[in-house]
Design a protein around this nucleic acid. Structure first.
Length: 786
DNA sequence: AGGAGTGCGCTTTTT
DNA sequence: GCGCACTCCT
């Protein structure tokens, strides 16, 4: 590999400082759209290329699995590019396809696969599968490497069961959801059930601590962990076992954390333990050949309900850095140029966020043209709002050849708002909904996974109970109660009863036959788990259990759909096996529990994206519709009487606005259905916080009667805004000779000629070391420099 | 044991 | 306005 990587020329000076930083701590304050992913990926590449860091010594924490995948792909491209240059003296994309694939797969194997890139949860689930046998909690509970990961609904029902059945409490007074939240809270402060008991003197707190204790006992007896445990257990393990900590400290010499403003205390503890080997004295730290590199933006902190705490970011300079003022510090870099959005959009975002008091001043310098005004649409109700948005999308898609459906996003505060938009889009425009009912939350998928979990981890009683009578095997509640009662009395797991025919025959009475045949199927697959791939097991167990036949027998559309989903799950397993070396059932299950809908959002998919503002973090779209801007909805009524929560809502709005590249539409309705009743709605205060001169509401209103009308009508009603829109889109193509730009694959270049006019522009760009290229600016992905 | 019918409460956001 | 939990009936 080359000694001085030329890819560094793609960076602006601050990005370059961040990328070239080698040892010790560094905080990168990265505003929206300032190229932080670029900084992260280039830095990783540079560590390996320039500083000869072994990829397996790099730990990079991302916020979603999707971000992790993207990061890996981008690093792979950098390496493949370098290799193409060195071995063939050519740009990667100029090589034969076959050659490219081969190069990429070599790069992947050598440099990408050994990297530790993922979310906190997936990375530490992986570490726990290696080391959890060395851990014991305060109450001497232990787990083994086949542990199940309980998702939020598993956790929820466990709590509910404890509150209502085991402790016979009033679930009005002890709302299982609130209790679960309190437990999560305790875990995120690193408190054990015993700590929680000491912490609380009041009745309610003590009861919750008791539920927590029961909850933790049950997790342990199921050999299961919840999401919080995936972070908490490693922290406790590292604290109680310095050999284990030492091992991982040694392993992860370079730690990178993305979206640092959304980490919470316990995640901070984890990172701190790993990077400092548990030394509390700064003077004892040794940064030789080590670094901690975090990237974040306090203005985009939107996960405090998940205990995220952006003061952790603000404290980085004291905790890790030199603590010097901004002018003198060597442990902080600010990325302030925004390469994403039009100036109008940026100014709106900036004005909005200035209404927050809890922030550090940060400027976002625009690098692109002024762009369009922001349109605010006042709709009659949520149905008309949806029609407005959909019609606007159809118009623009038709009008601008450079726009496709995938360039539009509809963002809302709550998942429940998606329905009217789906209704308006259906049959007309391809769309995908991110979030809401996730694939892995569907009944048939949860059932399938329960079969797999029961096979991988026989102690997982929750899963066994889910499927013991699904499909129907004539096993009723009475039988289940007797089996469970016996297990509890003997202090053994349900499975130990089920797998013993004598016990079953005594306890289950007339259902014994069903129970025994169920146990026998599970047992047979358990015995083969080591020899078979996850895919073979899924296929086998779902057929043999009668689950598939049962659905086929039903013959309804719904059952048909469920069958499709089950086979979709099978495909997911196959895909997982292709992408991962760990093809074991446990490997797949861990992945499945931590997967999210967002992970499937692909760029190539030419569909309008519908999602919540939270899901939209980190994404960008040429045209964004931010809908439902009404008091009580956004900002949400639960946040309105608490200043800190209101500021978080405002940050959420800020995140939404800064997703837009070219054009931003905001909408609100005069009245809206809520729980089935029509309620009048008031404009969101956030709308009032935008500078008047940036906003326009003169867009031609589409009347309800026109909604079903043909394209002709749509065209005529758009007359007014056509000119202005056109100007905005065109502006992105206006290039002048001498301008500098960054091309995704060719790097930095200078515009030498501009050909043609109007929509048919092409430009000639001179790239250093590559020469001149003629590009279509509407097709190529270009970033203007300054 | 299992299906059908009724009433109640609910909506933030997610790894 | 919908999903879920509970009850009653076969």
């Amino acid at each position: 590999m080359t000694a001085t990587p030329d890819f560094l020329s793609h960076l602006n000076p601050s990005q370059r400082r961040a990328v070239e930083h080698f040892c010790g701590p560094l905080l990168v304050v990265a505003g929206a759209g300032s190229g932080k992913t670029r900084a992260l990926t280039y830095r990783i590449a540079n560590l390996i290329l320039t500083h000869k860091v072994d990829p397996e010594n790099i730990l990079a924490v991302t916020f979603t699995n999707k971000a992790a995948r993207e990061m890996k792909t981008r690093i792979e491209t950098i390496f493949a590019q370098q290799m193409a240059q060195r071995k063939h003296g050519q740009r990667l994309e100029l090589l034969p396809e076959e050659e490219q694939t081969q190069l990429r797969s070599r790069v992947y194997k050598k440099y990408i696969k050994p990297l530790w890139v993922g979310t906190f949860h997936s990375l530490f689930a992986r570490i726990l599968r290696l080391d959890i046998n060395k851990y014991q909690d305060e109450q001497k509970h232990q787990w083994n490497r086949n542990f199940s990961i309980f998702d939020e609904s598993d956790a929820q029902s466990l709590v509910k069961n404890i509150v209502t059945k085991q402790l016979n409490l009033d679930d009005k007074k002890f709302d299982p959801r609130k209790v679960r939240y309190a437990i999560s809270n305790a875990k995120n402060q690193g408190l054990s059930p015993l700590d929680a008991e000491k912490e609380h003197s009041g009745y309610k707190g003590r009861v919750i601590a008791e539920v927590y204790r029961h909850y933790q006992n049950q997790l342990a007896s199921n050999n299961a962990l919840d999401f919080d445990d995936l972070i908490l257990v490693p922290v406790k393990l590292f604290q109680q076992n310095e050999t284990v900590l030492g091992y991982w400290h040694q392993q992860f010499r370079h730690i990178l954390v993305d979206e640092y403003q959304d980490t919470n205390r316990i995640q901070y503890d984890l990172i701190r333990l790993l990077s400092t080997n548990g030394e509390t004295q700064k003077s004892a730290w040794n940064w030789q050949d080590r670094s901690i590199f975090v990237v974040g933006d306090a203005d985009q902190s939107i996960y405090s309900f998940r205990m995220a705490d952006f003061t952790i970011l603000l404290e980085f300079q004291q905790n890790f850095g030199d603590g010097l003022p901004d002018e003198d510090t060597r442990t902080m870099v600010k990325l302030e140029e925004n390469y994403r959005s039009r100036e109008n959009i940026l100014q709106a975002a900036n004005s909005l966020i200035e209404n927050n008091t809890q922030r550090i001043d940060k400027v976002l310098r625009p690098t692109r043209g002024l762009g369009e005004q922001i349109y605010v649409h006042k709709a009659d109700d949520e149905v008309e709002e949806a029609h407005f948005v959909v019609n606007q999308i159809r118009r623009m898609e038709q009008q601008y050849p450079e726009l496709n459906w995938g360039n539009f996003a509809i963002l809302y505060r709550t998942n429940a708002q998606s329905r009217p938009f789906e209704d308006a889009l259906r049959g007309k425009v391809p769309y995908i909904i991110v979030g809401g009912l996730k694939f892995y939350d569907r009944k048939e998928i949860k059932d399938s996974l329960a079969y797999l979990r029961a096979i991988a981890n026989p102690d997982d009683t929750v899963s066994l109970l889910r499927i013991i009578n699904t499909p129907r095997r004539g096993i009723g509640q009475a039988t289940i109660d007797r089996l469970m009662g016996a297990a509890q009395e003997l202090n053994i797991s349900l499975w130990e009863i089920l797998s013993d025919q004598t016990s079953v025959n005594t306890l289950a009475g007339r259902s014994a036959k069903g129970v025994n045949s169920f146990a026998e199927i599970i047992q047979r697959w358990q015995q083969q788990v080591e020899h078979l791939s996850a895919a073979e097991i899924v296929k086998g167990i779902m057929e043999e259990s009668g689950y598939i036949d049962d659905l086929k027998k039903q013959g309804t559309d719904e059952a048909e759909n469920r069958l499709e989903n089950v086979s979709e799950l099978y495909n997911a397993v196959l895909q997982f096996q292709e992408e991962n070396e760990d093809t074991s059932l446990e490997g797949f299950l861990a992945n499945a529990s931590l997967a999210s809908d967002l992970d499937d959002l692909k760029d190539g998919q030419k569909s309008v994206s519908l999602m919540t503002l939270h899901s939209a973090k980190g994404l960008e779209f040429p045209v964004v519709f931010l809908v439902g801007l009404e008091q009580g909805l956004f900002p949400n009524y639960r946040s309105m009487d608490d200043p800190a929560s209101l500021e978080e809502e405002r940050r959420l709005c800020y995140v939404g606005i800064t997703r837009a590249q070219e054009q931003l539409f905001l909408s609100h309705a005069r009245e809206r259905r809520l729980y089935g009743n029509r309620e009048p709605a008031v404009r969101s205060q956030f709308l009032e916080e935008l500078p008047k001169e940036l906003v326009s509401s003169t867009l031609v209103k589409v009347k309800k009667s026109k909604v079903e009308a043909s394209e002709n009508n749509l065209q005529s009603s758009t007359q007014l805004n056509r000119q202005t829109s056109k100007r905005s889109i065109k502006q992105s193509q206006e290039w002048t000779v001498g301008e500098l730009l960054i091309h995704d694959t060719f790097g930095t270049g200078e515009v030498t000629h501009v050909f043609g006019s109007g929509n048919k522009i092409s430009i000639a760009v001179k790239f250093s070391g590559i020469g001149q290229k003629i590009l279509d600016p509407t097709k190529a992905s270009l970033q203007r420099v300054q």
